[in-house]
C-alpha cells in the first residue's frame, strides 16, 4: 500500500464520506475533525491491533501526520478518508515491524487473491455477520490474516461500504467483496473452533 500524497488527497477529495464544510480556520477544521473521528479511528486501530495503548499512539501519529500535511499548505476537503488512509498505513507499518516481512508476502501467504464473484457464498454479508456473537467476532477479527482483518474492520466496525473500502485500500470493489465473504467464512470457522 502506498503512503499518502497529494494524488491520494485529490482522489479522496472527490469522494464524499462525511465531508466537513469548508469554513473556519485550518486549526478549527482540524480540531473539529479530531472531535468527530478520534473515537472511530481509535476503534478501528484497537480492533485491528488488539493493543489499546498502541492504538492510541497510532491515532495520535495519524493526526500529527495529517496536521503536518495541512501546515505544508495542502488542502484536505474530507478528513475522514484521509485519516483512515494514514492510520491504515501506520497499522501496516506496525505489522511490518513486528513480523519483519513485506505486506505483499503476508498477503500472499494469507491467500488473499483477487478472486471472483463465483467464489461468493449465498446470503447477505450482514445476515452472515449477525449470526455471530458480536463481542467474540470483534475479538477474533484481530486473529485473522491481515488482508481480511482490514476489510472486515472497515466494513463491520467502521461501517464503510465496499465502494468506500475499495478506494481506501486501492483495490477493486470485486476484490473487496471477495475478501469480505472469505473473511466472514474464516471468522465463522474461528468462532466455531473457539
Amino acid at each position: 500500500m502506498k503512503g499518502f500524497g497529494s494524488s491520494d488527497v485529490s482522489y479522496y477529495n472527490g469522494f464524499h464520506m462525511g465531508d466537513l464544510p469548508q469554513k473556519g480556520s485550518h486549526e478549527e477544521r482540524f480540531l473539529k475533525a479530531f472531535d468527530e473521528y478520534a473515537d472511530a479511528l481509535y476503534r478501528h486501530a484497537s480492533v485491528r491491533m488488539r493493543d489499546r495503548e498502541r492504538a492510541v499512539e497510532l491515532v495520535q501519529d495519524a493526526f500529527t501526520k495529517a496536521w503536518s500535511y495541512v501546515r505544508d499548505g495542502n488542502e484536505i476537503d474530507s478528513y475522514r478518508p484521509f485519516l483512515y488512509k494514514i492510520l491504515g498505513n501506520l497499522i501496516i507499518d506496525e505489522y511490518r515491524k513486528k513480523r519483519e516481512e513485506s505486506l505483499d508476502a503476508l498477503l500472499e501467504k494469507d491467500g488473499v487473491s483477487e478472486g471472483s464473484f463465483a467464489d461468493l457464498q449465498t446470503g447477505s454479508l450482514e445476515e452472515s455477520m449477525d449470526a455471530l456473537d458480536a463481542q467474540r467476532a470483534v475479538e477474533l477479527i484481530s486473529q485473522l490474516p491481515v488482508g481480511f482483518r482490514e476489510v472486515l474492520t472497515l466494513r463491520f466496525v467502521d461501517g464503510l461500504g465496499p465502494k468506500e473500502i475499495a478506494v481506501l485500500i486501492e483495490e477493486t470493489e470485486n476484490v473487496v467483496s471477495v475478501r469480505l465473504h472469505r473473511g466472514i467464512k474464516l471468522l465463522k470457522d474461528a468462532v466455531e473452533n473457539n
Binding site: D39, R43, D130, L132, V157
Partner: peptide
C-alpha cells in the same frame, strides 16, 4: 447496522484519554 457494528460502537476512548 449489524450487531457487530453496534457492539463496536462501545469501543471508544475514555473521556480522559480523549
Amino acid at each position: 447496522k449489524t450487531k457487530i457494528e453496534i457492539y463496536a460502537e462501545t469501543i471508544r476512548l475514555s473521556a480522559g484519554e480523549k
